[in-house]
Amino acid sequence: MGVFIQSSAQISIQEPLCNNYVTKPVLHDEPYVRAIECDYKAFIDPISARRMGKILKRAIAVSVTALKASNVTMPDAVITGTGLGCIENTEKFLSAMTMEGEEFLQPAFFINSTHNTISSQVAIYLKCHGYNNTYSHRGISFESALMDAFMQFETGSAASALVGGDDEMTPGYFALLDKLNYWKKSAGGPGAMAGETAVAFVLSNEVSPVELSGVEILFKPTADEMNRRLTAMCERRGISIGDIDAIFVGRSGDVDGDRIYDAFCGKFFPDREQFTWKKLFGESFTSPAMGMYVADELLRSDRKPLLKHVLVYNHFQNKDHSLILLSKC
């Protein structure tokens, strides 16, 4: 069995639905950057879009774009990871309820506050009756969705899947997380830059230039456990840790968090080339989806022809860790 990446699409703080970030990156350094939107009318008519928050419009746009670029018209599964779900609508309902009282609350905000609105709106849009699931677990939400998709292939339940990672960041929620010191305090200072993420991947068992060779999520792993899981993931693909040519690390600028990446790379990959993506795309709960996007693009390009196996490694507060192994075919 093989799981192959057929296509992908992104909307983020770089130019949407394209790979211009490679040659003409939009440079940011402020603590909080909103995504660059595309023209959603090309995807959704205004009447259908009337209740959709930003996260839903983005998810539909990237899903449709990725599907069009693939041979898959109707995926067997739609699986989404989202750390906060539809936080814009959640905030609207919560804020109206706590500030103005329980009397005149609007149902549309509630309906579209639910995390799985994303997967279900995509399914409704595609009229896709297949397996549908949504993961919401902090910094490993997307990787949980990816792992589920991987197992759908392993168990023979699916031959194709649309997997997404979506998080929007509202000014209100940015400010709340800022109180917990999630973000850098000023441009140029230390700390992470908050971004927004909407990425879709089309996976299928048809051979393509890049294979999804493995995905692992780990909870508070010790160094030994990390070693065991990393080794096991490589062995299942018939390679060893030494065969991994480059690491995409989730370095965000957060000093404590980045130390974990230093330790990981120092222990397992002291002499391997390292790439990062959060400087261009910012931090979000589903930012690892962007890491996989960037790694997949690089493997497809001819800029690093010697790369064969690459690893995307990310952690969230040193509790939730993830490994995504991609291989050039």
């Binding site: 209740r51 009397e103 005149f104 149902p107 549309a108």
Partner: peptide, 18 residues
Amino acid sequence: GLGLDSIDALELIVLMEK
């Protein structure tokens, strides 16, 4: 006409009340 649905109807009920 406008193509509204049952959720919109609930919104209109809230509008009339408010």
